[in-house]
Structure formats: structure tokens, C-alpha cells
Design a protein around this nucleic acid. Structure first.
Lengths: 165, 165
DNA sequence: GGGAAGTAGTTGTGTACGCAACTATATCAG
DNA sequence: CTGATATAGTTGCGTACACAACTACTTCCC
């Protein structure tokens, strides 16, 4: 039952395909769990909060519109609303009105948020490097980045019944 | 280039590192979301249920111990308990006592569960191929699989059984 | 044998999330 | 200007999950 490298469309996945696909799932799960635990232990900061702080800190004026931020941290809008609520309660962010569009609002980095980020960043960067990046050579990193580029547009495409019988 | 390929330990991630790392997060998020939506739309089956069905169907006797299954589908034990509860209520699985160890129990595939899996499998395999695998050459798949192997710690139980997705 | 320690699984509880419905504002067509 | 439609964000609600505490059993060691 040697599986070909690339079986026909409706055949089971080959070991090769399986390794590439399930490996992605496992690596993601393991990494996110470890990074979150690490950050939480060292700074009491969930990974989701850190993620928001990083995004906002890179934005011009250190503030971002909610929808933009939601896309950036891979959350639904309602999910982001509550995440920003929690972070605002912790003093890490502030909600600011948008001058141009009265519907919108900004999530603005507070000094406390910036301080917290600066404190946590080295921890997180070290962990990402240790658990993931250092495993690879520069060439491999470049290759990975290139592969993701190719997948992302495709996965963005409208998924409605993309492949039904 | 402003950023070196590999900055020092506590410096910000280079574009290269960032692409490899955030790309993984984005690809995972988009893929899982699309695959779940696809499977749910076509067969009313959440991806988590499908995942369990696949694992159990490949186990000897089409049954698996709960803890083994929890590892396989990347869930906590309590999470798996309730997932199996839901699937049992849907008739996809049955809980069976373990003869050797009265503490343990098996999740056993029912005929209905097997039928449901057989029905959903082509849909899912096609989607995984379309959204992910077909993006890559055989060499790239092999490389990916190899990279994952290096990232995953030895805790990864290598069940050599060639299971499909 | 009998208690200590370990393991399998479930249950109590809290939390983070998504979807759908909602409000409020913006934009566009006539 | 006015009504139709679209967009930004929030809220109600249900769900899936993790952690910790628990029960029940097993295993180990004297």
C-alpha cells in the first residue's frame, strides 16, 4: 500500500501530503499554546493582548481602526470589540473617536500599554526564535515565507462551495 | 534592506522572520476557517467532528481510547469528553467500556459515523488539496513535512499508519 | 494484603469567541 | 432633500473550549 507522492483527487492523502498538512496543524497548535503560556507566565499577558499591542504600536499615531485591527489579529469584529474592552479595562488601550467618520473609533495605545509591550517583547521574541525560527536556516525561512505568500491569496478566495461534487 | 536576515536575539523580527512566522498564523487561520465552513455547508459536519471520525476510523477495531484520541485531535481531555458526548448524541460514535482497564473507555465508530465519514471525505480531501496542497510541488511538500518534523518535539507519537487526513 | 501514588475520564466553572441582530452614521440615486 | 443601501461598531446569545477538582480504578512497593 505504498502511497504515491500525489494520489488522484479523491484518494486518500499520501504520507507526503499528510506530513505537510497535519504538520502545519500540529506545529501551529503547539506553538501558540507554548507562546501563550510563556507570555502569561512571564508578564501576565495573554498572547491575544500582546498581538493587539504589537499591531497598534506599529500603526501611525499608535492607533488603529477597529475593523483594521480585527483583520490584523485574525478576529471577528465582535471578538475584537470585547478584546479591546478587556484591554481598555486593564489600561492598555483607549477608545478614541474618529474625526472623519463618526461611526468609527480608534483603539489607541496608552503609555501603560506601550510600557507593557516593551516589557513583554523580548520575552516573546526570544520564545518565537527558540521554538520556531531558530529551527531553520535563512534559506528555509525565505522559502517558508514564499510558500505562505502563494497560499494566502488562494485561501482568501470566496470559499462558497469551492469544491463540492 | 533595513532589517538584516537574522537580527540579534532581542531585536525586532526581520521581514524574513516575520513573513515565515505570521504567514504560518494566517495560513492556519484561513485554512481552518475555510475547511470548516466547507464541510459544514456540504455535510453539516464540523471539522472537529470530521477530525475525530478520521482518527477513530483508522484505529484498530475502529475504536480509540479517549486520551489517545484527545492527543490525536489536539484537544484537552475535558474538551474531548464533551466532543464525544455531542457526537454520540448524533449517533456518530458510541462509548464502549474497556475490558482491560475499567477506568478507561473507547470511542467506537458506529455504522452511521462511518457512513457520514465516507460521505464527507471526498469533499474534505478536495478542499485540502485545492486550498493548500495543490499550491506546492512535491519537493516543496517534502520540504514542509521535513521542517515540521524538526519543529515538533519528540512527544509526537509517530503512528506510522498511513491515515488520510 | 494494604496503603500511597499514578492514571483515565468526567464534571463544575469560567472565558473567549462567532453569528446574527441591532444602532448609528455615511453614501449614493433620483 | 429624501429614501435606499452600505458600513463601523456593539450587544444578545449560544457554543466550544481549558483548567482544576473530582471519582474510580490501577499499579507500585513494603
Amino acid at each position: 500500500m505504498a502511497t504515491a507522492a500525489r494520489p488522484a483527487q479523491d484518494e486518500a492523502l499520501s504520507d507526503l501530503e499528510l506530513g505537510a498538512w497535519r504538520g502545519l496543524l500540529r506545529v501551529h497548535a503547539q506553538l501558540v499554546k507554548a507562546l501563550d503560556a510563556n507570555l502569561e507566565a512571564a508578564h501576565g499577558l495573554p498572547l491575544s493582548h500582546y498581538d493587539v499591542l504589537v499591531q497598534v504600536s506599529h500603526a501611525p499615531g499608535q492607533r488603529m481602526r477597529m475593523c483594521e485591527l480585527a483583520d490584523g489579529v485574525l478576529l471577528s469584529r465582535s471578538g475584537l470589540t470585547r478584546l479591546v474592552d478587556r484591554m481598555a479595562k486593564d489600561g492598555l488601550l483607549e477608545r478614541c473617536a474618529c474625526e472623519d467618520d463618526a461611526r468609527g473609533s480608534f483603539a489607541c495605545l496608552t503609555p501603560a500599554g506601550k510600557a507593557r509591550l516593551d516589557e513583554a517583547r523580548p520575552t516573546h521574541l526570544a520564545a518565537v526564535r527558540e521554538l520556531f525560527l531558530q529551527t531553520f536556516t535563512d534559506d528555509e525561512l525565505a522559502q517558508l515565507a514564499g510558500l505562505w505568500q502563494r497560499v494566502l491569496p488562494a485561501a482568501d478566495a470566496p470559499d462558497a462551495s469551492c469544491c463540492d461534487a
